[in-house]
């Protein structure tokens, strides 16, 4: 709240600042706000104004074999890529923060590079590299590249959590008789879990709405939900896409809220005052 002695300029800025914040939020949310109402339109085209409401595009989405197939593929590829990216990224972050060796400062940019390099280049490169190995047109190739795209997020979030880690806890655990592996499992991992979970979440969403690499690597059998939406837009602009988008948004939001809730709860337990 504003103090009593605030000058008119301060009062003006106080309200302008709040208005700007609202505008930024509206800007960020507007694509979602635009697409979700359209999924309830009875019209056959993605146009405003909406004349009448119906569930027909949801029925179309859940009743159509192609949509369901792509949804199933997304739920195969994204979790598998997430697990792989989380395990590798966490180990990399732990190794990078605990050890000191020449060339360490070069290793971090290498690990982050999938995030920096344009995805098209990753896609072309992966295609050229994977096709002689027989890794195109199958799940494994897609999962591997999606995992590579997710690793940087895990490395960054876990490193951030580890930078505040009290290393005497590791010494304490060793002095109490725990082997390094047990110490990692019982002490380090539970404490960096918030970073691991955030990283996993980013890795999941990266894979879950990735379309470019999928265009290069996936065969007809591996079409994921974003890939299906992409071809849907190219071929026939059906409002079923809006329904698919709404489902994606709902799922991602639910995932995010659940994990945030879990994280907040464990955080509260640890820092609660008597």
């Amino acid at each position: 709240m504003l103090p009593n002695y605030a000058s008119p300029v301060e009062k003006l800025w106080y309200w302008t600042f709040r208005l700007l914040c609202v505008l930024v939020l509206v800007f960020l949310m507007s694509p979602l706000l635009a697409i979700i109402p359209l999924s309830f339109s009875a019209d056959s085209f993605l146009v405003y104004p909406i004349k009448s409401f119906s569930w027909r595009w949801y029925a179309e989405f859940f009743g159509n074999g192609e949509w369901m197939h792509s949804l199933k593929n997304s739920f195969i590829v994204a979790p598998a890529a997430t697990v792989l990216a989380t395990v590798l990224g966490t180990l990399a972050a732990v190794g990078l923060t605990s050890a000191n060796f020449p060339g360490k400062s070069l290793l971090m940019p290498v690990l982050i590079s999938p995030m920096v390099v344009p995805v098209v280049i990753v896609g072309v490169g992966a295609y050229l590299f994977f096709s002689p190995l027989g890794l195109t047109n199958n799940y494994l190739g897609l999962i591997l590249v999606h995992a590579a795209l997710g690793v940087p997020f895990v490395v960054i979030t876990v490193s951030a959590t580890l930078s505040g880690f009290n290393t005497s806890l590791i010494k304490a655990s060793a002095s109490l008789g725990a082997s390094p592996l047990l110490t990692f499992r019982k002490v380090v991992l539970p404490l960096i879990a918030p970073g691991v979970v955030s990283g996993a979440l980013f890795a999941f969403t990266t894979s879950f709405d990735e379309v470019v690499v999928t265009l290069f690597l996936a065969g007809p059998e591996q079409v994921t939900l974003p890939r299906q939406m992409f071809s849907g837009i190219k071929e026939n602009i059906s409002p079923a896409i809006a329904a698919a988008a709404a489902v994606l948004i709902l799922f991602s939001t639910a995932l995010l809220l659940t994990l945030e809730w879990l994280r907040g709860r464990s955080e509260r337990i640890r820092t609660a005052k008597a």
Partner: peptide, 11 residues
């Protein structure tokens, strides 16, 4: 061993 900053496991 008793550490300077106690090093109790916070979780």
């Amino acid at each position: 061993m008793v550490f300077q900053n106690y090093a109790l496991f916070p979780h």
